[in-house]
Computed example of a mutant assay.
Amino acid sequence: MTENTTSSSTPLADLSAAGVSIWLDDLSRTMISSGELQQLIDTRHVVGVTTNPTIFANALSDGEAYTEQVQQLAAAGSDVDTTVFALTTEDVRNACDVLKPVFDASGGVDGRVSIEVDPRLEADTEGTVEMAKKLWAEVDRENLFIKIPATVEGLPAISQVLAEGISVNVTLIFSLDRYRGVMNAFLTGLEQAREGGKDLSTIHSVASFFVSRVDSEIDNQLDAIGTPEATALKGKAGLANARLAYQAYEEVFSTPRWQNLADDGANAQRPLWASTGVKNPDYPDTLYVDGLVAPNTVNTMPHATMEATADHGVIPADSVTGTYAESQQVLDDLERVGVSYAQVVDTLETEGLDKFVKSWAGLLDSVQGELDRLGGEAR
């Protein structure tokens, strides 16, 4: 199906018109150089890009696109960490340049590309802050987002990085309590930025609330419980949790504390729906798109989810506000049948961090192998 940016009758156009920014959850050098990224902007309403260690590991496995730069770095004697830093920041810088017209047209709201701090720093507040500043300086593009995981140690890092005037994408949020902590860290960071004389209007942020992984973990537990009551709750937790997050967003960004910052030019931290590819084939493949339509949000999608939405998404004007009582009932019912929300979100955060650390380790191994091979050829 061909998407037309001038048409208002396609699902992706409808999603954009409803106030949802469509971001692609993928990036590679080939995607940039081939024009594919620009094509997605032109035909799929894509207005942003997110990356993570797994995405970079997959991209760099396509060694052909990176061979020349790795060869140069090997000849210069670069170690593996320096090489990965150089490779990933170049891709993100080039993607920022492709998306700069979107950034300008949206007044800085969209046209963003996200790059994550080294996941091995997830428990190191000061290390995270220093890495964020280093990435921001190296990419040197105003439409960059620095991704920082929403760990306990990450919260003060988020505030400190925002206080420096650096825009932040807070990632790996699973729980409502942690999300409230993230919004508090955001407000604190803006207050510190204002005290430091920063222009609040130039600082942007999103909070990435993960969706499908919640259903995957809870559905497994519901299957183990096996009662009719438990089975009836399958596939409901992800949407319920995210919708209650939007309720929390509405509450926080209507407070006097926020209004005080807004009066000085601050931009609200938008909720971003992450992990929106459906993992259970029994569920509609656009479940986490159609079910999370709300103003001033972002949905970052893998290619398959984006194409499914373009083909047969059914986009309501709003599928979130007005669902809060029903969503809370889902979480209450889950506790009643024996699913611990607190245990689920703790497990998901731990697994999410472990996955990124393992992906990063694999990335370092593969790049080290290329450095060894190409460095040997240079000699």
Rank of each mutant, 00 (worst) to 15 (best):
Q38T: 14
N241P: 14
K133E: 05
T50C: 01
F85V: 01
A262F: 01
V214K: 08
I173N: 02
L73A: 04
L353F: 02
V214F: 10
P11I: 06
V161P: 11
A268K: 15
S16A: 15
L73T: 04
G197V: 01
T2P: 02
T151Y: 01
A266E: 07
E64V: 13
D91S: 11
G189A: 12
A294D: 11
V289F: 04
A310K: 14
W23L: 11
D81K: 08
Y179D: 06
A132M: 09
H204N: 13
G313A: 10
A274C: 08
V168G: 07
Q71N: 13
I22P: 12
K358M: 02
A310M: 14
G48L: 10
L364H: 15
Q259V: 04
E122F: 10
T50F: 02
V339M: 00
P256Q: 02
A268C: 09
G154N: 11
E153T: 06
F209D: 07
E138N: 02
A240T: 12
P302Y: 14
K147Q: 05
T151S: 10
L331G: 07
T309C: 13
Q328S: 07
S319A: 14
R180D: 11
A232W: 09
L15K: 10
A268W: 06
V46Y: 07
I146T: 11
G376H: 14
K355G: 06
P256A: 04
L135T: 06
A317Y: 02
V102H: 06
R29Q: 15
R243G: 14
W273G: 13
V278E: 04
S201I: 03
V20F: 04
Q328G: 15
L99Q: 12
A193Y: 08
L287K: 11
L162M: 11
A274R: 05
L353G: 12
E130K: 09
T83W: 01
T297L: 07
P256Y: 05
W360T: 09
V20W: 03
L363K: 07
L353K: 06
G181A: 00
T5H: 12
A361M: 10
D311W: 01
T323R: 13
T10L: 14
A310N: 15
D282K: 12
Q269M: 13
E164K: 05
